[in-house]
């Protein structure tokens, strides 16, 4: 069985096997469900964002430069994961691993900034229980942060597990859906920086 050599790479490695096809579709469906998950959190936040209960509000806390830097980091990590997939499709496995590592590092930097940000806000008297705004804010942004953390752990596991295996029809779909997940994190962040931070400061 193992002597089967594929001389030309199939154009869509992630969908070359039935397992890969199923994983690819199933993951997109999962992302469809995640849409509602985050919509519920956004709705809750928007419903409660004016309920400060005497605590600090968005315009007292948010700093645009920090959010801008975080946004750029996450956006760039989205691009590096695109590079990873292009490398994969070219059959350049080393390139795939390298770009995935860069993506993870950028993700970790983003997460570091987010933790710093939360610590900062707590020092400025916005605790999780201070007000309905505080609870809703930390829940929405925190859930996104938890997704980032999970993504980092997931992709790191993949990189370590497959550091020597070379590109196979089994790991190609795994990397591919992990990248889809990473893009989706960025999609959610676009709405977070617009709806939470920019709208928070702008009015």
């Amino acid at each position: 069985m193992a002597d089967q050599h594929v001389q030309t790479l199939p154009p869509n490695l992630e969908k070359a096997t039935l397992e890969g096809k199923n994983k690819y579709l199933g993951f997109w469906l999962f992302l469809g469900g995640e849409t509602i998950l985050f919509a519920s959190l956004f709705g809750t936040y928007l419903g409660l964002r004016g309920s400060l209960n005497g605590g600090p509000g968005p315009s007292d806390l948010f700093h645009l430069p920090l959010v801008f830097i975080m946004t750029m980091i996450l956006l760039t990590s989205s691009l590096t994961s695109v590079f990873a997939i292009i490398s994969m499709k070219k059959g350049n496995y080393k390139g795939l691993l390298t770009w995935m590592t860069v993506t993870v590092l950028l993700g970790a930097a983003f997460l570091g900034f987010e933790i710093y940000e939360f610590v900062e806000y707590v020092e400025h008297d916005l605790g999780f229980t201070t007000s309905a705004f505080g609870s809703a804010f930390y829940t929405l942004v925190g859930t996104h942060g938890a997704h980032v953390a999970f993504g980092i752990a997931w992709i790191t596991t993949l990189i370590i597990r497959y550091r020597k295996s070379g590109l196979t029809l089994t790991n190609a779909p795994k990397f591919y859906v992990a990248v889809l997940y990473w893009h989706f994190i960025d999609v959610v962040w676009v709405f977070i920086f617009s709806v939470v931070y920019l709208m928070g400061i702008g009015g």
Binding site: A2, H5, V6, T8, L9, L13, T17, K89, G91
Partner: peptide
Amino acid sequence: IDPTAPLTGEPT
């Protein structure tokens, strides 16, 4: 087709 065999070769 062995799904664990490393894929060699180039894309078209």
